[in-house]
Design a binder for these strands. Structure first.
Lengths: 145, 145
DNA sequence: TGCGGATAGTATGTAAGCGAACTAAATTGG
DNA sequence: CCAATTTAGTTCGCTTACATACTATCCGCA
């Protein structure tokens, strides 16, 4: 059944990324950080909510994620002087420095896990999974969609 | 990136299944139970380890899963008279009774989430995800594979 | 100006998964 | 036959995700 394949492949990729980081001597960097790191490489100093929207995670999920990233010395939370509710997330020196490693791990993961699968097929899978995600949100939120 | 699609679609399916069970008035039945239930419908009275192997979950994960299934009155743990280490998992009356609902929810989920995608393409996705899962295990366990 | 609703972030509790460490029991091998 | 190893299951600590409820702050409008 498709659900089985989805959950296993998702978990497998997560574990593979974690493994590669460990092999780079970065046991404290995990798959979960990558989405946020990639966003921050586009530009840091954004709020937790903005980042959460970009990576499709709830605010309550972001709190713990940013906690762990801060503990791993990848980001800092700084108060926004213009909005005392908001915190702006900035890359630390380490967070900036590991960008090439992040790229390397992602590239290697892609090559390792899609080996034997053509780029066209990978694109097709992404497109179909995108469709599944869309179907879920229209069937879920809209109720009688 | 493919990792994003995998984790989102996997989560989406999980939530969709949970939602459909809720709509059936079974808030306490969740996606996580399904793999084990389907195995038990093939034949119950198996050990936790056997079931874990069948659904590709670690023993430590199974403990909590069976706990929750027992709390939802779907299964019972019974000691194996022939092996005092082992516990045999049996379907309860409720566990047996909901089989048609499980089938219905699974069928509906399949139709909802793959709507707009041909059966051939779904099969193709399953096949390619299977390949990714295999790639992960050979690259992960074997190390320099 | 000040009240009422939006918004930012956190806290809490639950699910689902892993690995490592542990206990009890079974199996194997010398 | 008994010591050593393996196996069954649980417990513990961690990650990652959610929803809900809460605090603090901001903003729109009367």
């Amino acid at each position: 059944m498709i659900g089985f394949f989805l959950s296993r492949s998702s978990l497998a990729m997560k574990q593979h990324v974690n493994l590669l980081f460990k092999e780079e001597g970065m046991e404290d960097v995990s798959m979960g950080f990558i989405g946020v790191l990639l966003e921050l490489y586009k530009g840091d100093g954004r709020t937790i909510s903005e980042l959460g929207d970009s990576v499709s995670l709830e605010r309550s999920t972001m709190t713990g994620l940013i906690d762990r990233m801060a503990k791993a010395d990848l980001v800092t939370r700084e108060p926004d002087p213009a909005d005392r509710r908001a915190l702006r997330i900035w890359l630390t020196e380490r967070g900036t420095r590991i960008q090439p490693v992040v790229a390397k791990v992602l590239g290697q993961t892609y090559r390792d896990l899609t080996s034997g699968i053509g780029d066209k097929d990978v694109e097709k899978v992404e497109k179909l999974l995108g469709r599944i995600i869309d179907n879920a949100s229209s069937n879920g939120k809209g109720k009688n969609g």
